[in-house]
Design a protein around this nucleic acid. Sequence first.
DNA 1: TTTTAGCACTCCAAGGTGGAGAGTGCTAAC
DNA 2: GTTAGCACTCTCCACCTTGGAGTGCTAAAA
Lengths: 349, 349
Amino acid sequence: MTRHPALPERDRRILGVLVQAYIDQGEPVSSLWLASRGFGVSSATLRNVLARLEEQGYVRQPHTSAGRVPTDMGYRAYVDQFMAERRASRPGPQVEARLRQAGTVEDLLSHVSHEVSRASHHVGFAIAPAANTARLEHLEFVPLDGGKILVVLISDGGQISHKVIDPPERYGSVELQQAANYLNSEFRGRSLIEVRHSVLDRLREERTLYDALMERALLLANSTFDGMATAPSVFIQGTSLLLDDVGGEDPEATIQTLRTLLRMIEEKTKLVQLLDEYISASGLTVVIGSEHPAPDLRSFSIVAATYNDGRGTGAVGVIGPTRMRYSRAINAVDSLTRAINRMVGRTDA
Amino acid sequence: MTRHPALPERDRRILGVLVQAYIDQGEPVSSLWLASRGFGVSSATLRNVLARLEEQGYVRQPHTSAGRVPTDMGYRAYVDQFMAERRASRPGPQVEARLRQAGTVEDLLSHVSHEVSRASHHVGFAIAPAANTARLEHLEFVPLDGGKILVVLISDGGQISHKVIDPPERYGSVELQQAANYLNSEFRGRSLIEVRHSVLDRLREERTLYDALMERALLLANSTFDGMATAPSVFIQGTSLLLDDVGGEDPEATIQTLRTLLRMIEEKTKLVQLLDEYISASGLTVVIGSEHPAPDLRSFSIVAATYNDGRGTGAVGVIGPTRMRYSRAINAVDSLTRAINRMVGRTDA
DNA sequence: TTTTAGCACTCCAAGGTGGAGAGTGCTAAC
DNA sequence: GTTAGCACTCTCCACCTTGGAGTGCTAAAA
């Protein structure tokens, strides 16, 4: 996207080596060190180049007599170049085998978040497609105390969600059974959104009112789908790896950032809201530090990619410090989304 | 338990004030400061007392000319005294109201872990009773691709677990329905352990073999209960609060400990194994730092209490630094376990 | 026997100093 | 456009100094 064609070839290569070196070593990169990397020019020349790069905003100096450190814009250029040159990668066979033995979607995504964290050495996440595009496989009502009812909803692909509703009227267990039977036979195989709309439509129809049983069943269904399935499930793994990146500049600020990030991870829904913006973008996305719209994430980068299971779009990704091994993270995210796409494509009914 | 009656009354009081002050302020407590707290003796006398307490192992000095800091043994004495004097507390009415609107057991425990974290300002957890003492409410088989079968198991109280099994033989969806009907009518209301044993027994009986359908249903049930329900569900909240306690002595070591604790929180099963030892103890337990059998927890304290829902024993607790407000944590844990006991007692069928 | 005042002592924390070293920018020559 | 040379800046570290906090001990008082 944001390419900078203004940057001449040599400058780009130098910038690339610099960013790579900083990612590897974590220390400002000096002109002398760069000179030893076979550019065929002296450190003085490199200093000129670096001064220019700094002027353009790609690198900066922590202090007057320090080497250069990439800015977010520098990382961006590096990542763009890497993305342009890279070739698609596949996960190792043992990873795919591990994924393949997952049964439910939840199981699979839990494994995926684990693997992506393993492979990238950072926090990994996996988000299921919004459930309302899934199809109804089976609906079950279980009576609880006080007239409350437990609804278990199984959608195709094995995703399971449940909810407790508290209907205004009482239902006997036999009636619940009948209602479930009726709803299952009526709506099975249709998407949750469709079901929701159909239920509303039928409740408006006149003839429904003649059949009290049917109406009561539909009322149940209505409260079942009311607000349900709006929370997509998220799996996050590798939280403890966050602490590995603590060696930052300002310890106090780092702690503060970590705290907010940890809180976001705990309240997964908020994280999902943020990530949704990237999810909407197709393909593999890298968001670097200050590029984040959310200020809480300004010191982190996110590598995320979407997958499609034929019914909806989910996402897999990595969260880590701006100084992350983007190559590793990108390969991890990319190969795992490819794996999911292959698997759900094959698993699909 | 481990009372130290050897400690004279005045020394105990002084130790108590010291521990309380250190918990509040986080800084070593000096004899001069203690003298200002109205013991009616001079700092010199207090110095003598402190020297004695140090000799006995209740307090220590970070360095020669620093005030005193409680040791784990000092915390222990403080907690024991607090426990002896304290009165039972109840949660605020709004807390109980929030809990009451939870539907499933999972829902309730998730809320509880949240509340206990809120109230104690530390990491809170809630563990469900081992599921195998729960009673079977409903069993459901859903056919998946490749001959795999999704089993949904609802136990009374609304606890739901599911599992994917891959039986050696094929089952049609009609047969699955029949099998579920058969198993439900046969085993509903019995505890999962009983069911498991019954299933095994019947499979051994001769007459079972005459009914192929029944046998195949029982085989399904067998793989369903094989290994299922061994993982009790755990809810943990407040992870980000861990970082509040970072102001420790050795930053590097602190990070290391946090990392292992975070990892344990991620792999909840390991945590449960550890906590099981405390769970077996009845009532409210406080385990302080080095009292932990597990070395990974040596710099943390745990306050935990058990509850009983009539079918099994679960636990609620708090994990925090040894320098925690034990009074607050104990009250939080105690009042919430009481609340659960009241609620499940009433909710029970 | 216990308490207290006094005092010497220890140790940490904070601030200051002074190289050493790393790395730069600039200039002038190539 | 590139390079050598050099002055300059800044950090880092090790060292020292100083002030203060807090102790332990001793000898006297209660």
